[in-house]
Amino acid sequence: MTEGPAPALLKQIESIALAAGRLILEIQRGGAAVQNKGDGSPVTDADLLAEELITRELQRIDPSLPIVGEEAASAGDFSGASARTFFLVDPLDGTKEFVRGSADFTVNICLVENGRPQLGVVVAPARRELFSGDGSISYKCTLSNDLSIRGRSRIATATPASALSAVASASHENAATKDFLDKLPIGKKLSVGSSLKFCLVATGEADIYPRFGTTMQWDTAAGDAVLRGAGGCTLTCDGRELAYGAKRPEKKALQNPYFVSFGGSVEALRKLLRVSALEVSV
């Protein structure tokens, strides 16, 4: 279903994410420079320059709002996460996929309010796709080669059938995920990288996405906002809504607990968690 214009602030965030996507593709065409962080994960000049661009442009929207970006946080700057309202940014989610030449990498920007992902934008520049949501409605946009928006449609989760379709990480699947899914009526299983997993559930292409591994809040916030706006939910393994922000000024406080995202209601997901007798923790 084609929809009218998105809310003004959401469109501003979309424009910033699209600009970052153009920059990333330009760097990719020229050959990205890759180095390793202290934890061994890769970082490229595309990550760093895209975060600089996003931070600069978000500050123009409202210089009073803190911005917590992955690369700044990795360098020790994460104090803004204790604010009531702040931006969470992952300038290039799926760096490993980006380095390998896969199209499954995204730009993620989310406005967090009172612990909830309120406005979220996910741009998959190599796939020419944009997903966004404002908490009550979510969209999928098709993009032209220059990443301008060609069309905008409202998206909504599907009503899960008796056989569920699951989506899992392309590079982080583990035994806990397999055990969880084995206890559920899974009819089809998809694999994709980055925050696109949330987007597949938001569009109804998948029903459930379990993540029993280490993730940070900037990895999940934007995609989670899109999913919630499309009618889905994300719960921790004990049935609580996945929350954002941190009371302690330290990077570890921004690490997510294990979670499950679902295209149905909170009550239905809590029932599945009980059925699976899930016993996993961070």
Score class of each variant (00 low, 15 high):
A230P: 01
A230V: 11
A230I: 12
G231L: 05
G231F: 14
G231A: 10
G231M: 04
G232W: 07
G232M: 11
G232I: 06
C233W: 03
T234F: 01
T234G: 01
T234I: 09
L235R: 07
T236A: 04
D238F: 00
D238L: 01
D238V: 03
D238H: 04
G239V: 10
G239I: 12
G239L: 14
G239P: 10
R240F: 13
E241R: 15
E241L: 15
E241V: 14
L242V: 13
L242H: 15
A243C: 06
A243D: 12
A243M: 13
Y244D: 05
Y244E: 07
Y244V: 02
Y244W: 04
G245Q: 13
G245C: 02
G245F: 13
G245R: 10
K247F: 08
R248M: 07
R248A: 12
R248S: 14
R248P: 00
R248Q: 12
R248D: 08
P249N: 12
P249S: 07
P249K: 07
P249T: 07
E250K: 14
E250F: 13
E250Y: 10
K251V: 04
K251M: 12
K251H: 08
K252T: 06
K252E: 15
K252D: 09
K252P: 00
K252F: 07
A253D: 08
L254N: 06
L254T: 07
L254P: 08
L254D: 06
Q255M: 03
Q255T: 09
Q255F: 00
N256C: 14
N256A: 00
P257V: 05
P257N: 02
Y258I: 01
Y258L: 02
Y258Q: 02
Y258E: 03
F259M: 05
F259E: 01
V260R: 04
V260W: 07
V260P: 01
S261A: 15
S261V: 00
S261R: 01
S261P: 00
F262N: 02
G263L: 02
G263A: 13
G263W: 09
G263Q: 05
G263V: 03
